[in-house]
Simulated assay, not measured.
Amino acid sequence: MDADSPARPVALVTGAGRTTNIAAATARTLAARGFDVAFTYYRAYDARMPWGTEEGAARALHAAVTSHGARALGVESDLADPDAPARLLAAVHERLGPVTALVLAHCESVDSGLLDTALDSFDRHFAVNTRAAWLLMREYALRFPGPHGSGRIIALTSDHTAHNLPYGASKGALDRITLAAAAELGERGISANALNPGPVDTGWMSPDLARRLREATPLGRLGTPQDCAELIAFLCSPQGGWVNGQLISSNGGLS
């Protein structure tokens, strides 16, 4: 960036462990729209999921972000650690500067139901999806420098319930925290919204599930990570600043 160029705002996007997911698409899109971008990933989570670890994903995303003239910072972070959010915001502040837009796209998601959910799985879902989100919002708000009205929090949520109990319950709690942030952080110049992206296949759907969801959607297709990234980029823009305190469904009409 030229010394005489205006500073780019900084976005922090969590959960960018794979180049094909919503967080990675969001990081690339925000970089193209003028943000410097920090992102998190956690390879141990991907390693225990069906899709596995994508080798070189962080390097590839870093290169994609910088290709738009943006600065990039990838940080591996286990957000189940209650000290991780403060360390993360401190690292981003030191390397890129204060964060203007906080996009919470990380998650713990392991299917189980009311009768078979293990206690440690329940606790980890809430630690990652709920507690970490609250701590990230708190640390972000305490560090937010302004200008007033430019701050953005976007949290990715879900309406899953049956047979996905700890994930759905922890995302429901995240919704309430996000609505509280919209009300409590307005005086700091920060808006907050939760976004439900609907059926987006980033590698977790079986062929049968993908077919059934396509058939249940009026547009006859699944969502893409880019669909979600475009809406997040709008919410992060000056034009999206009046949208606040909303639970937004962007799901192709599935609901």
Rank of each mutant, 00 (worst) to 15 (best):
L235T: 06
A127M: 05
V10D: 12
N21P: 11
R28K: 04
S170E: 13
A132L: 04
G34W: 10
R43F: 09
A38M: 03
S255W: 10
L135P: 09
G245P: 01
R131N: 03
L30A: 05
G74E: 15
R221G: 14
A169C: 10
A25N: 13
P85G: 13
V103L: 15
L247S: 02
G245V: 01
L142S: 13
L88P: 05
G52I: 13
A70Q: 03
T217L: 07
C228K: 00
T224R: 14
P207N: 10
G15T: 11
A86C: 15
S112T: 14
F144L: 10
Q246T: 04
H148T: 09
G189C: 08
L88A: 05
A11Q: 03
R176W: 04
G189S: 08
I248L: 15
T53C: 09
N251R: 07
V128D: 02
L219W: 11
S158P: 14
A194T: 02
L135H: 06
C236Y: 01
R59A: 15
M1A: 14
C228P: 02
R176C: 04
A182L: 08
A38P: 03
P50G: 03
Y41D: 13
S150P: 00
H93M: 10
L142K: 14
L119F: 11
I154E: 01
L195A: 07
P82N: 07
S191K: 00
Y45T: 05
I248S: 10
G52C: 11
E54L: 12
H68S: 13
S121E: 12
I154Q: 05
S112G: 03
L156D: 01
A192N: 05
R152A: 11
L195G: 01
R143Y: 08
A91C: 13
D123I: 09
A105H: 09
D81T: 00
A194C: 10
R176Y: 10
R152M: 02
